[in-house]
Amino acid sequence: MASAIVSWVWRERFWFPDNVTWADLESGVDYPQAGHLLYALPLALVLFILRLLFERLVAKPCANILHIQTGERRRAQPNPLLEKVFKSKTSPDHSHLEQLATELKWEVRRVQRWFRLRRDQNRPTTETKFCESMWRFTFYGGIFVYTVYYMWDSPWMWNTRHCWTNYPFQPMIQGQYIHYFAEFAFYWSLMFSQFIDIKRKDFLIMFIHHFATLLLITFSYGNNMLRAGALVMCVHDASDIFLEAAKLANYAKYQRLCDILFVLFTLVFFITRLIIFPFWVIHSVLIESWEIVGPYQAWWLLNSLLLVLQVLHIYWFYLITRIAVKSIFKGRVSKDDRSDIESSSEDEEINSNCNKKSV
């Protein structure tokens, strides 16, 4: 049964154009092998541990230097009945509150206050958010610089038609291998940590985004679309750097710097994800590859996933525009429309990780 499933998933007619087989890519030339991606799973665990060490040994000392407080909050007094209700419903309606107040012989306002304090206990502190953003900023900045460095002399960075020259028989260079495995491991680590990180309103959307990213990395690596895949990841990383930098400035209460970085983020996001990505990268994968290679089964799936990402980009840019409009009228970047769940502050910090990217 297992062998039949494996054979179905890795059938050649799905992954490659006609007359290309797996054996053709095992000829001694350094071509990508789909099985190599399994090595990224333990690397994802290493990245997750590295993140914990980075936040503890680097990010927290930086937060202390910038006088970012841990923000200790008042804790709700222990109450088994209210705690049981809280696990199923964090914000009961008024009738439910009255019922609980009657059972406990409390005033309704006291029950309301208990739920407010209990929700606040689950909200991450500014220090926690600062550490998370600093880790992401460090990764995005480092991988973007590395990607531009190794691709700078590559003809396919400047002329996307080279992405399909002699495809799929394009030997893999070391820079592509390192880039792909770093991104693949990072997104697997995000999939792990998403369930313990700051929980946001768009949890499901980000889960879909991470899942689509991992699928795209897997497919593009498995059928040797490394050139186009590297371009996609590079385009996405560019704006994430400015987003995380803006959040860091906001948490440190450098509001003017935050506003400047947010404007830069908005411009870079628009240029990279709404212009370069659809009209340069997707155009290459959709049109140029059709002209040079021709469509095949995996080709349709890859283009579908890229179009899904583009839809998400449009949605995120809508949210970013709302924030930008508010900042114009209020004089500063205000509440993020993707802010933390149960946030009670009307002037919440920027907590969006609009990122993302994917291959």
Score class of each variant (00 low, 15 high):
residue 96 H to Y: 01
residue 76 A to K: 03
residue 38 L to D: 03
residue 136 R to V: 03
residue 261 L to T: 05
residue 332 R to E: 01
residue 142 G to H: 07
residue 242 F to I: 01
residue 190 L to W: 12
residue 249 A to L: 07
residue 122 N to D: 14
residue 105 K to V: 00
residue 223 N to C: 14
residue 79 N to I: 01
residue 241 I to N: 06
residue 153 D to W: 10
residue 338 R to W: 03
residue 171 P to Q: 08
residue 64 N to L: 09
residue 117 L to K: 01
residue 190 L to Y: 03
residue 252 A to S: 14
residue 238 A to R: 05
residue 232 V to P: 11
residue 311 V to R: 08
residue 94 H to K: 04
residue 97 L to A: 01
residue 192 F to Q: 12
residue 248 L to C: 02
residue 26 E to Y: 06
residue 179 H to Q: 04
residue 97 L to T: 00
residue 178 I to R: 04
residue 318 Y to S: 12
residue 121 Q to M: 07
residue 258 C to E: 15
residue 36 H to K: 08
residue 188 W to M: 05
residue 197 D to Q: 10
residue 24 D to Y: 07
residue 312 L to Q: 10
residue 315 Y to F: 11
residue 77 Q to M: 09
residue 55 E to S: 02
residue 199 K to W: 08
residue 19 N to Q: 14
residue 320 I to F: 06
residue 102 T to D: 06
residue 12 E to T: 03
residue 329 F to Q: 04
residue 92 P to T: 00
residue 308 V to S: 10
residue 325 V to P: 02
residue 258 C to I: 03
residue 245 A to D: 07
residue 295 P to S: 12
residue 24 D to V: 01
residue 51 R to D: 05
residue 106 W to P: 06
residue 265 F to M: 13
residue 88 S to N: 13
residue 121 Q to P: 04
residue 86 F to S: 02
residue 132 E to N: 13
residue 269 F to Y: 15
residue 353 N to W: 13
residue 342 E to F: 07
residue 268 V to C: 15
residue 37 L to D: 04
residue 292 I to Q: 15
residue 195 F to E: 05
residue 217 I to M: 12
residue 164 W to V: 00
residue 335 K to D: 05
residue 149 Y to S: 06
residue 41 L to T: 11
residue 125 T to I: 04
residue 225 M to Q: 14
residue 342 E to I: 02
residue 341 I to Q: 14
residue 75 R to E: 07
residue 352 S to P: 11
residue 45 L to E: 04
residue 70 T to V: 12
residue 258 C to M: 09
residue 99 Q to E: 01
residue 119 R to E: 03
residue 328 I to H: 06
residue 190 L to P: 01
residue 290 W to V: 04
residue 78 P to Q: 12
residue 25 L to K: 05
residue 62 C to K: 00
